[in-house]
């Protein structure tokens, strides 16, 4: 796969601190990549460097093969960028603003109107074209920013916290828009909300204190970090017997029991093999009543906490 973004040993120092510290990563064409990290981890700084707003202190960054510092105009022609706080001119009307931005980004005068209408429809702005930007709600302003980022049909779209300040319905819409961009466009989005990446991104880059601490698909990250599985079974039966029998199953390392109403919930920690069928078979054999049998999914949140904690401890 051809690379849309190539970042090599990128470092950005501000007075007294390293916002981005020797970061390297690549993003392939057509990928949707989530940039994940706690506040102040260096997400915005990295994105600003990619969008040619800030220069790097050292290292290099390329977009579509162009260096962001040396061929800044070529890069800027190819990206749609939505900064963190969605700054817009408050005194302009939505239509005016979008058509101004389209003209600025080189959309020809004939293509401009249909194109503005297209992005307005894509971002759910059709009804507010005549409204003044400054009077729009936060959610609408965010969508105007999105429409602005998309208006010149860029190859790479960089969105800094695109769903911040939106209500759940709007978040769903924005995610939908992002997902629809995927095959044709490359998307790099940042967020500190974890479920966000799980639903929209094919790959996650976790950044903490200016360093990339992990880069993988959400699923693979999960299995990589988990090491083993945890299975939860709720059943009725003689307590001692059950635990003993469960320990007989292959790979089981620990069984704990707790009472839930008049049922008993067993947490079974085991190896990588899925032993749920064996638990069921054991229940059938011994005549236990089984009401729940599931595999506990470690959330991305736990992974994230684990990764960023490790990083902090090693410092």
């Amino acid at each position: 796969m051809e690379n849309m973004i190539e970042v090599k040993n990128l470092t950005k120092r501000f007075a007294g601190c390293r916002a981005v510290d020797d970061v390297s990563f690549t993003v392939g064409k057509g990928e949707v990549v989530g940039f994940l990290g706690p506040n102040g981890a260096g997400k915005s700084t990295t994105m600003r460097i990619l969008a040619c707003y800030l220069p790097a202190s050292s290292g290099e960054a390329k977009v579509a093969g162009f260096d962001v510092f040396r061929h800044s105009l070529e890069v800027r022609r190819r990206i749609g960028y939505l900064p963190e706080s969605t700054p817009l001119y408050p005194e302009m009307r939505v239509d005016e603003y979008l058509s101004y931005r389209a003209a600025l980004k080189g959309v020809g005068s004939r293509r401009r109107r249909p194109r503005v209408n297209e992005v307005k429809e894509l971002c759910g702005l059709t009804d507010v074209g005549r409204r003044i930007v400054g009077q729009l709600s936060k959610g609408y302003r965010q969508r105007v920013g999105m429409a602005d980022a998309l208006v010149h049909d860029p190859e790479l779209i960089i969105l800094d916290e695109p769903t911040i300040g939106l209500d759940p319905n709007q978040i769903r819409q924005v995610r939908e828009v992002i997902r629809n961009l995927a095959p044709k466009h490359t998307v790099l989005l940042s967020t500190h909300i974890l479920p966000e990446v799980e639903v929209t991104c094919q790959r996650v880059l976790i950044i903490n204190r200016g360093r990339i601490v992990a880069s993988d698909s959400p699923d693979r990250l999960r299995t990589r970090l988990q090491g083993g599985r945890e299975i939860v079974a709720e059943l009725r039966g003689a307590k001692g017997d059950v635990a003993q029998e469960l320990y007989q199953l292959p790979g089981v390392t620990r069984v704990t029991a707790e009472a839930v109403e008049d049922w008993t919930r067993f947490r079974i920690e085991c190896g990588t093999e899925d032993i749920r069928p064996l638990v069921f078979a054991a229940a059938a054999r011994s005549g236990w009543t089984l009401r729940e049998l599931r595999q506990e999914k470690q959330s991305l949140e736990d992974i994230f906490a684990a990764l960023t904690r490790v990083e902090q401890e090693s410092k």
Binding site: R48, A51, C52, Y53, L73, R76, R77, I79, Y81, P83, P87, L88, Y89, R101, L104, K105, G106, D148
Partner: peptide
């Protein structure tokens, strides 16, 4: 808005 302006081509 300077950020929007300066990241346009």
């Amino acid at each position: 808005t300077i950020e929007m302006l300066m990241t346009a081509p």
